[in-house]
Design a protein around this nucleic acid. Sequence first.
DNA 1: CTGAAAGCGCTTACAG
DNA 2: CTGAAAGCGCTTACAG
Lengths: 337, 337
Amino acid sequence: MRVTLKDVALHAGVSAKTVSNVVNGTGRFSPEVRARVESAVAALNYVPNFSARGLRNGRSGLICLALPNLSSPYSAELIREFALAAAGRDLGVQIEETGFDNYERERHLLSQARRHLIDGLIMSPVLLTSAALQPTPVTPPMVFLGEVRQDTTDHVWVDNVAASRDLVEHLIGLGHRRIAMLGLFVSESARLRREGYRQALTAAGLAPSADLEIPNPTWTTAAAAAALDEYLDRCPLPDAIFCLTDSQALGALNTLWRRGIRVPDDVSVAGYDDITDGRYAVPPLTTVGIDKARLAEVAIDLLIERIAEPGRRPRRVTIPYRILPRESSKPAVRRPG
Amino acid sequence: MRVTLKDVALHAGVSAKTVSNVVNGTGRFSPEVRARVESAVAALNYVPNFSARGLRNGRSGLICLALPNLSSPYSAELIREFALAAAGRDLGVQIEETGFDNYERERHLLSQARRHLIDGLIMSPVLLTSAALQPTPVTPPMVFLGEVRQDTTDHVWVDNVAASRDLVEHLIGLGHRRIAMLGLFVSESARLRREGYRQALTAAGLAPSADLEIPNPTWTTAAAAAALDEYLDRCPLPDAIFCLTDSQALGALNTLWRRGIRVPDDVSVAGYDDITDGRYAVPPLTTVGIDKARLAEVAIDLLIERIAEPGRRPRRVTIPYRILPRESSKPAVRRPG
DNA sequence: CTGAAAGCGCTTACAG
DNA sequence: CTGAAAGCGCTTACAG
């Protein structure tokens, strides 16, 4: 029923191989043959069957991007960069959500994922430990995104400890002393951001305190808003609040606004991720930004190289970050006394 | 090299067909055979080759979701719902960005898309006209999202005219008279939202005026913020601003804040889409919301039915909307005189 | 209930 | 430079 290579070959009066060559730009053929084949392709509306090609070549031209949470604005910005970078390399992107609390789902993706349909996997592991991340005979070629400590798999990361330390130092430099932290603490990135936060406090002679670490039970903006609200019912307003992601910071801004607390006059707020909605928040969020397009390109190129050469030594690429001070943070008002 | 069905069959001492049956849950087999096959699968770490299966079955188990802009928070929320709904039906989702100004890209997706690798296409057409949207022998099974007027393809939509009319009526009901509209006007949805806006004004005896329609050259929050800023340099502040999307409304809130204009005291603002960041904006955005999970489920089910029965009559499903009044809009202050 | 064969549509050696 | 054959790994008729 469907138009196949063979039909095109018949129509053009050449062999199937020649059609394949013309379609894929491989081998050699005269301009005249090329024209004949191309007009046959057009006349018959031929589109190659990618399943057959995939079976034969062992490549589908598809990669999978697995993130803990597809619905956050940060994920959206990342997904777009991956889609564009992949398209530029003639790859399609399949997406997958792993969640923040589903160890089995992460594991399953590594070991079972429609392997043989996807050529490789780019994943942001949240719960998997270094041992579970070892490549095995059944794991597909993969690249990790994020902060998992391991040296057996290609890996694109940002120095979260340094970035969050720098951000907190920025807040300290503005004169703030009681700096709280708000976030979901389960992922490795969150742990590292907390580590940077504590380092900055300690270096400035400020004792980190559990009283200033406000846990958010989930990753959502809504939960962050609620967590801060409850915190402020019990505790005095800090000088500044460092939120582990911009999405959570937006929740914090909302709660502060609702309580009539002015940002940055009464309290400074900072986030992490540099999402668009943070850039246009009221007030715009001080945050940590990275070049997301670069992250996507590097990850995809590492994956392409890994697919081509499965035995090569794992590489790790560090993406630089920038502290982006905006109107949500400002110098502390000197309190008399 | 790779473990195939045949290897499993050999290991379990059964035929390839039996392994296939057990793996797919088709045909009949004794519990004993099933156990033998399953332990062989586990022992050998067998994973079916989806390319081969796809070639044989004519199905890949993959669908494509094509949206104009992958990076917006609205897209992210939609993408997540599609990924979840698809996973629940054992389908994978490949994503594709079409842009707002690339007619050829939209066309290409329809006619060429990795057809034969994807089983179907869910697309939000922006530029394609009704004629270009006719199914042809080369278009894959497809479902449209959004407001394209046509009756040849399955279609999930929201009544944008009514929704935006209702929203603007809400603003009028609050006592506002000079109601501006801000947005990118290229897509069919935008045109319909404008239509609803104009209908509401007309019905209230307020003349629609080009002076109140503020075009945004792109879909971005940044451009919306800039467009409103320029507008306010030239024109008096309206009573209310209806933004065609929440993302653009967030840009508007930012510009108003920057200029020291209070929302909703000096001007009411409304958006469209009900994104999370609008819910937590300062102040929270009045908007139009739909059940995105339902939208995704309906679209995927329509696609599944279309794939199974290519000749069936096209259906159109209407997703209900709700006006969600929040703090960004409030009753007009009676001006003396 | 099981086995052997055919074939999905490609591409890659292998001959000519 | 071109043609005929083989085979990627499945599943679906077809026999037994």
